[in-house]
Amino acid sequence: MNNELELKIQSWLDGELSAAEAKQVAAQVTADTALSGLATELRQTKSALVGNEMDLKVPETREFYWSKIARQIEHEERKSAAPVSVPFMVQFRKFFIPLAGVAAVVAVGLLTLNPSVPSLSSDSNASSGEMETVTYRDQESGMTVVWLKDREESQASTADDTSKVETQ
């Protein structure tokens, strides 16, 4: 049995042959037991697979899965935002400089009056070069989760502590 014929039998089963070729291959398969055996095997394998793919589910909650997508979309959109044109910046500075002065005075005043004022900075994450972080807020527990992603360095560092406790 040559390989060209084997592939032709497969193409016949997959409906990829012209009517004339299909007729010719069908005749050859009927006349030869080896060919018909091969055709049976190919047909059985094909039909076993159709509609029998495993039903898999994302191994994360909908919210956590989406939070990573949303974060990346926002990041990409910020990145691709058009740069501010120079003439606009000239206009902007006219307002920004006096406004910044006022803001600075207000901030100094606040800190002087109440030195224990909580940090004004917003949430932030910074990681070593090999890593990226994804933040997710779980509403039910009120917990913030920072997922440190795909960095060999961090895994190595924690491995010292966790490898001791692996499968025993």
Binding site: M54, L56, V58, R62, Y65, W66, I69
Partner: peptide, 10 residues
């Protein structure tokens, strides 16, 4: 995403 995430992941 919520509707079709399982299929895309699978």
């Amino acid at each position: 995403v919520g509707r079709h995430r399982d299929k895309i992941f699978a």
